[in-house]
């Protein structure tokens, strides 16, 4: 379990997060959604200890603040929104850096396996800097997967924290990456993903936390959180949820917004 209690973050003079409670369970994919600047990335950075915060973050029951970097790295891996490399590393070398914390020598083939998983095995020898943004993001995902290879280790779940993992991907790879994330969760690991795509969120998330203006607006199942009222409140525009005919999943159709705009502005 990954629990954050009463998290407040002040950056510069602005309070970016105010008293946010957040819980993610192992075995589930928990999405953090909300408009630009609502504090999603900041919440993730508080969970990873990259930013000073007040409140507590418990990772598998232990406060993260007292732990050493390598202890945390053994339990969770973090995918940033984008990563630039300073030197001309090849793709396979980047992925291998994910093995730094573990027993690298014994798991060297893991790097290739991880690349295969994100569909980039044939790029192993290319230079990372020469890949497209979406390809780079998938290479980083492979690196992150290498770091926490087994979703459960010694009975304790491991965690993937992903900041907009699919933002720069085409629809096919969006689905591929979300499948990987869900697979990790289904095998007992925990996944926390910052998401902008509400439809993918509805499709893949088990839990959704909705932020707006640095506060937690709602936390629950997609069906509970992704409602007309909450969405319209959070994003400041009229949105209407719907359900797909077959699977019964929620989907949000921006086209429908036009129909509602008049009602919305009237109310």
């Amino acid at each position: 379990m990954l629990t954050a209690r009463n998290i407040s973050v002040t950056l510069g003079h602005a309070q970016v997060l105010a008293h946010v409670d957040f819980t993610a369970r192992a075995g589930q994919l928990t999405a953090i959604v909300g408009p630009n600047g609502s504090g999603k990335t900041t919440l993730l950075r508080a969970l990873t200890g990259d930013v000073d915060y007040s409140g507590t973050v418990l990772l598998n029951g232990t406060d993260t603040q007292g732990q050493r970097p390598w202890q945390l790295a053994a339990q969770r891996a973090v995918l940033p929104q984008a990563t630039t490399m300073a030197f001309p590393f090849t793709v396979i070398e980047v992925v291998r850096i994910g093995l730094t914390n573990g027993t690298a020598a014994t798991h060297d083939s893991r790097a290739m396996q991880a690349l295969r998983r994100v569909g980039l095995a044939h790029y192993a020898n290319r230079f990372y800097q020469e890949l497209s943004g979406g390809e780079q993001q998938r290479v980083q995902l492979a690196r992150v997967l290498c770091q926490v290879w087994a979703p459960v280790e010694d009975g304790a779940p491991r965690w993937l924290l992903l900041d907009e993992p699919v933002a720069s991907l085409d629809i096919g790879h969006q689905l591929e990456v979300m499948e990987i994330a869900r697979g990790f969760a289904r095998s007992g690991g925990g996944v926390v993903a910052v998401m902008h795509d509400l439809n993918l969120t509805a499709l893949y998330a088990d839990e959704v936390a909705m932020l707006a203006g640095g506060r937690l607006l709602a936390h629950g199942t997609p069906a509970d959180v992704l409602t007309d009222a909450t969405l319209s409140d959070a994003y400041g525009c009229a949105l209407r949820v719907n359900t797909a005919p077959q699977a019964g999943h929620t989907f949000i159709l921006p086209h429908a917004a036009n129909l509602m705009t008049e009602n919305w502005s009237a109310s």
């Binding site: 200890g49 990259d50 390598w70 945390l72 790295a73 973090v78 940033p80 630039t84 030197f87 730094t100």
Partner: peptide
Amino acid sequence: GLAMGEATAHHIGIP
């Protein structure tokens, strides 16, 4: 690790 930036270096376990 630092080649990927300080935050990522920290994430992979580097003090």
